[in-house]
């Protein structure tokens, strides 16, 4: 808490109040994040980006929060080595983040633009309220993924998860494309998605590789099998995904995809009397 700043000078939440040391090489800047408080790490990253750095490499990341949060600069890439903390790339506006490790909760929360690639699993609440950009997760994801994803004009967010997901996948979805492959999972016995899949959906589209049981799906969804047009649109997205994780796109497309779309853009239009 901020008040702990007054407990002892130079100590913040048990961390020494110090900026990480920047190692610069051309437009690449490398930081050792070990034992650095998130606030100082992110401040250092923002300063370097403002100073013209194009590639930021963060070593020994161990759960520091808000990496990439609010970064608007295009053409900037942040590489995270270790485990990215909560709210990675939240409110991000155009940068690219690649995580070599797992990511915790809130990846790409309310993200506006840009790209996030996670070579590992990710936690809960991914892409909440996300409006644009691309998120690729190699492995499993947790609960409440893709809730209230939306789209606006040219901005159509895309999220592809290579593993399995828990409950509430795509709940309240208002736009964009969510894809769940169920392939790179550590949970062999689990179904590909949990309950309440697409509940309250009123925009966008969800694709799940293989089939899902009817009881898992929200009553606002229409259930179809992806047809040739759908697959033609999905193919470049999946090719991009497979390239990131060294997977074979033909193997991904070897099984049919279940497609969920909303039955109405106004699911609750008839609930009220005036």
């Amino acid at each position: 808490m901020p008040q702990s700043q007054t407990v002892a000078k130079g100590v913040i939440e048990g961390y020494l109040e110090r900026m990480p040391e920047a190692v610069r090489d051309g437009d690449t800047v490398t930081f050792d994040a070990a034992s650095i408080y998130y606030k100082h790490l992110n401040e250092a990253v923002r300063d370097e980006i403002a100073g013209g750095a194009k590639r930021i490499v963060l070593k020994n990341v161990n759960g520091q929060r808000y990496i990439g949060t609010g970064i608007r600069e295009r053409g900037v890439k942040i590489e995270v080595h270790g485990c990215a903390g909560n709210d990675l790339a939240m409110f991000m506006g155009g940068a690219e983040v690649e995580v070599f490790g797992n990511a915790q909760d809130g990846v790409s929360n309310t993200m506006d633009d840009g790209k996030v690639v996670v070579h590992g699993d990710a936690g809960d609440v991914l892409g909440y309220g996300m409006r644009g950009g691309t998120v690729f997760i190699e492995g499993d994801v947790g609960y409440r993924v893709g809730i209230h994803m939306k789209a606006f004009e040219g901005k159509v967010p895309v999220m592809v998860c290579g593993g399995k997901a828990r409950d509430f996948f795509g709940e309240y979805m208002a736009g964009g494309t969510l894809v769940l492959l169920g392939m790179n999972s550590q949970f062999d016995e689990q179904p590909v998605a949990g309950d309440f899949l697409g509940t309250g959906m009123h925009g966008g589209e969800i694709y799940v590789r293989g089939t899902v049981e009817e009881w898992q799906i929200g009553k606002e969804c229409g259930v179809f099998t992806a047809d040739e047009d759908d697959l033609a649109r999905l193919r470049p997205i999946l090719e991009d995904f497979c390239a990131a994780f060294d997977m074979d796109v033909e193997a991904v497309l070897a099984e049919p995809l279940t497609k969920l779309v909303p039955m109405s853009h106004r699911p609750y239009g008839k609930l009220y009397v005036y």
Binding site: D105, G106, N109, V125, Y128, R131, R144, I147, H148, K150, A151, F152, K155, F168, E171, Y172, A174, G175, G200, H202, G203, H265, R266, P267, Y268, G269
Partner: peptide, 20 residues
């Protein structure tokens, strides 16, 4: 729609809680 950054004509549903 431009100010909210959502499509025209669809309901703007705010979930009861913030899901984060």
């Amino acid at each position: 729609s431009t100010t909210r950054m959502i499509p025209q004509g669809t309901d703007a549903l705010s979930p009861a809680p913030h899901h984060d």
